[in-house]
Design a protein around this nucleic acid. Sequence first.
DNA 1: TAGTGGTCTAGACCACAGC
DNA 2: CTGTGGTCTAGACCACTAG
Lengths: 209, 209
Amino acid sequence: MSGAWHPGDRVPAEHELMVEFDCSRMTVNRALSALADAGFVERRRRAGTVVARPRRQMAAIEIPDIEAQVEAAGARYRLETLSVDRIDGAAAPAVARLEGAAEVLAIVCRHHGDGVFALEERWINLDAVPRAAGVDFGRVAPGRWLLDYVPWTEGDYRIAAVAADPRLTVPADTPCLSFERWTSRGGQTITYVRQVFPGGFALTAGGSG
Amino acid sequence: MSGAWHPGDRVPAEHELMVEFDCSRMTVNRALSALADAGFVERRRRAGTVVARPRRQMAAIEIPDIEAQVEAAGARYRLETLSVDRIDGAAAPAVARLEGAAEVLAIVCRHHGDGVFALEERWINLDAVPRAAGVDFGRVAPGRWLLDYVPWTEGDYRIAAVAADPRLTVPADTPCLSFERWTSRGGQTITYVRQVFPGGFALTAGGSG
DNA sequence: TAGTGGTCTAGACCACAGC
DNA sequence: CTGTGGTCTAGACCACTAG
């Protein structure tokens, strides 16, 4: 972190650090493995450990659900559900990647804080989450419900700037942030959501390189 | 990952798993610690290990530099540097958080791929990176140079949608993605950058919850 | 083929926090 | 007080790969 070691520099071998720090090889290995996981060094058998050449920037972002975002901004949250429909999987838009699903729940809602905070269009795979059919999404936001009740293992995200959607009731020339997310578990898509935020929001993140 | 264990469920203690899987406690501990680091379980002394209640969505995003993005899209990259100025730290915009710096390098450039890809405004703290004063930023993009030569330990990011900047030479009503980044090491701000992309770009990410 | 990291073991002592 | 996880040790065998 001080920058004293430069990318490509050789890090002493485990047995040398073991002597230098008077500890066992297991302890050295755990430390170096942690550095390797964090991307600070690269390790290869026989070749040894070298300071990593940062090739890309990595960051861990934390995505609070919308209700938490609104409340963090000091406003009171209100959900307005525009429609909830049970449709055939083939009727879902292709972008949702839900072609294989027999039944899909299609939800459109608005999140309000101090004004309209976000528009959300969501498709839930009822084959993967049958319980969702019995939930009153007029009262609980789909994102919150899924977060609480449906574990997931893979997520894909896409962030882009788009023009305002008329359903946001903001001036048509307001630049908006589009946040898309595909959530799946074991290769099966659980839900696809597209959220549109007027103006944007902050993603706090950390990282190193 | 199968969802068979629900949030709050108790995970067997290390000595039980040791018997079940016929391995040493160290091995069990490493597995459970990895699961805890990944956020799948929570561990507390005496209380034991339980399946975590996902409270928020976390994702690790990978941010390639612009040159790599352009080339990944199949276009040829070209850098156009509009201005490079050595200024007083006090003259940098407050948002750059560079008030303490004696000297700052202010750079404005355009990244071209198939058309204008991005506009970049960057401020580099010359107190922290004196070598930057000798670099020809008309030939090498500041982001690429910094990535190669300046290690960093903390990064903050902000993503928002904004109107088009005239310097992007795209229609004024084109929604654009603004990507801001503060990079620091040991509490000292190294660089602040604001990049504006017409339309947006994809951030591929992974995560679990 | 020898040097390096990857991983496991059996045992130990300790810190912490429910009971 | 006691059950739990946190961490360390000394030693071992193995996998990979650069020279």
